[in-house]
Design a protein around this nucleic acid. Structure first.
Lengths: 235, 235
DNA sequence: GTTTGTGAAGTTATTCACAGCG
DNA sequence: CGCTGTGAATAACTTCACAAAC
């Protein structure tokens, strides 16, 4: 029998794939032609078996005795993450954060495409960010029906975030990425993720306040880079 | 024998505490005087036993038969997160992202305090953000010695992020929060966390591209809100 | 009756350690 | 030899289920 059409990949692994992707991108740019799990591990701040196990969920892309080819590995990770498709994004809220997101390379590469920018503030409407015009939020529904965004990004102040989320859901956006400092509620069929810019600050203060108390001599701490995501995946 | 001075709290729990904190903040503002684990769970997008287990690591602060007092619980979470201390923060990179961070309420409340803003760009130096003057990056070392930041935040473009991190470490900053789209390397005694604004985009595209293939009828997905952090904690 | 707090059971993730391949 | 890929062992986390407290 043939291999299953797509293997089940643990959520913890999925959360790390973008980190490997970033590192490989650098390596490819730098012209590296081979990289070992040990090297990748050091750069990612995890250990080598984890890297090998993670990559093994995608397939066997390494060469024993030598390592992985960064370019090939990168293409496999991109494929696995679904980055060979088209991912139009609408961003609502064009304050500093919204502009930062719209200008961020990650929002305009590897399949992602900023398809619409919106704000309620009249003084912002009509201005251009990355060559795109900011539209009045009232036009959201209309524009969403002509070029439906697959991901709606919320970058408004906390107070209006829930309203925006409701509108997005009503307009048929199936997934919401929330950068506003507020926990939102959406219907269960909508994929919602919450990125709070200051949450990591709090997690850091937790660990720092504890290491301090033990005397600053004992500084130990693996876990250099950690990113995104807690537990389990959608069914 | 007395209870241990501070219990060991699982990393996964630590990552969720800020989420509970946010929710409790809303509840307190709204005047709610009691909340059950079930209600908290729904708002946080997790299940009720998880909430109870998480909170039980901090102590027994609930009342059986009725629930938790949001205000008291909030104070306990803040204490546990070390938010009763003083946490001066230096931000390097005053583009859109840096300004968004400096203006973000989470950077100026609950013990956090923006102590210094820096950029290399002469046109930004001298401008004010939130009443604070942006300084030339060259002055970083000097200012860091007079009011040493406990957390250094990097909000520069990717290309300069590593240099900034090196300077921070050399100046004695013991913890770095990196928002630049680049994986950084620091000595092992420095606590480093990496928040990439587009990583969640990629994680979303992974799950979306898979649910799509199964036919959009089957939309199921628990895991509504997820935030920060993967695995284990510093020793 | 309601809801917490928690052992015990179940699940997922990490690490070990080594066979197998280049 | 060196390094990957992977079962087996360990550890971490989540969920269940219920006794105890209000």
């Amino acid at each position: 029998m043939p291999a299953p059409n797509h293997r089940r990949i643990p959520g913890a692994t999925v959360a790390r794939l973008p980190v490997y992707q970033r590192i490989l991108l650098e390596l490819v740019r730098g012209g590296t032609t081979t990289v070992s799990s040990e090297q990748l591990a050091e750069m990612a701040g995890v250990n080598a078996s984890k890297v090998r196990k993670d990559l093994s969920f995608l397939g066997s892309f390494g060469t024993r005795g030598s390592g992985y080819d960064p370019e090939y590995l990168l293409s496999q990770i991109d494929r696995e993450l679904g980055l060979d498709g088209d991912w139009p994004i609408a961003i609502v809220g064009m304050g500093n954060l919204g502009r930062a997101l719209a200008n961020s390379p990650g929002f305009s590469s590897r399949g992602f495409r900023v398809a619409g920018l919106f704000d309620v503030e009249p003084s912002l409407v009509g201005r251009r960010v990355r060559g795109m015009c900011i539209h009045q939020l009232d036009d959201f529904e209309e524009m969403a029906s002509s070029d439906p965004p697959r991901i709606g990004v919320i970058a408004t102040p906390g107070a209006t975030a829930q309203d925006v989320a409701d509108r997005m859901v009503k307009a048929g956006v199936g997934s919401v990425l929330n950068f506003a400092p507020r926990v939102l509620t959406v219907p269960p069929h909508v994929l919602l993720r919450y990125v709070d810019l200051s949450i990591e600050l709090q997690v850091m203060s937790f660990y720092l306040s504890r290491t301090d108390r033990r005397g600053s001599a004992e500084v130990s701490s693996p876990l250099p880079h950690v990113v995104g995501l807690g537990p389990s995946a959608p069914a």
